[in-house]
């Protein structure tokens, strides 16, 4: 299943990017808190990656949905909804003038996101291994696609 492997690789890359972006934002916020960075710089750095991250997340979500990985899609769904809510209310960017009031909340939100992305990351790694190896290994024993599907369902939780 070549396309499947390709998808897993794409997911993997997207996931890494999301994790990196979140880590970067958290670092910026901590720097801000400990006064290593001024609010102007910090918020402009964070704001620069917020929208790309949202887009990336949306793409990832949609891909999961289209490829039929329901469980993982559901895992990303809450963040998708929350992101779109923030965006609609125009609250997705950091407000320079009030950063310090919200810095704690913003940090917690990003740490929570990071946790989700990390768990997603492990799933992706496992699944890509399965997709890459198991299927090819098991293929001779399961000539029909149907059987394979059943098996994969089991593996898919």
């Amino acid at each position: 299943m070549a396309w499947e492997v390709i998808f897993w690789i794409i997911f993997f890359i997207i996931n890494i990017a999301l994790i990196a972006s979140n880590l970067y934002q958290i670092v910026c916020l901590s720097d801000l808190e400990s006064d290593y960075m001024n609010p102007y710089e910090s918020s402009s750095r964070i704001n620069a990656v917020v929208v790309p991250e949202m887009v990336l997340h949306g793409v990832c979500s949609v891909l999961l949905l289209l490829t039929g990985y329901w469980f993982m899609f559901l895992l990303t769904l809450p963040i998708t909804i929350y992101n779109s809510m923030l965006y609609m209310n125009n609250q997705h960017l950091i407000d320079v003038t009030e950063v310090f009031r919200y810095v704690d909340a913003e940090k917690k939100y990003r740490i929570a996101k990071l946790a989700v992305y990390l768990s997603l990351f492990f799933l992706v790694v496992i699944r890509s291994m399965i997709a890459g190896n198991f299927t090819t290994i098991l293929e001779p024993f399961h000539p029909t696609n149907e059987d394979l599907d059943i098996l994969s369902h089991v593996l898919e939780f």
Binding site: E33, D35, N38, P39, V99, F100, R101
Partner: peptide, 12 residues
């Protein structure tokens, strides 16, 4: 912990 008035916080 918090400041109230007309100003901008430059650091915490």
């Amino acid at each position: 912990t918090s400041y109230h008035g007309n100003f901008m916080l430059r650091s915490t």
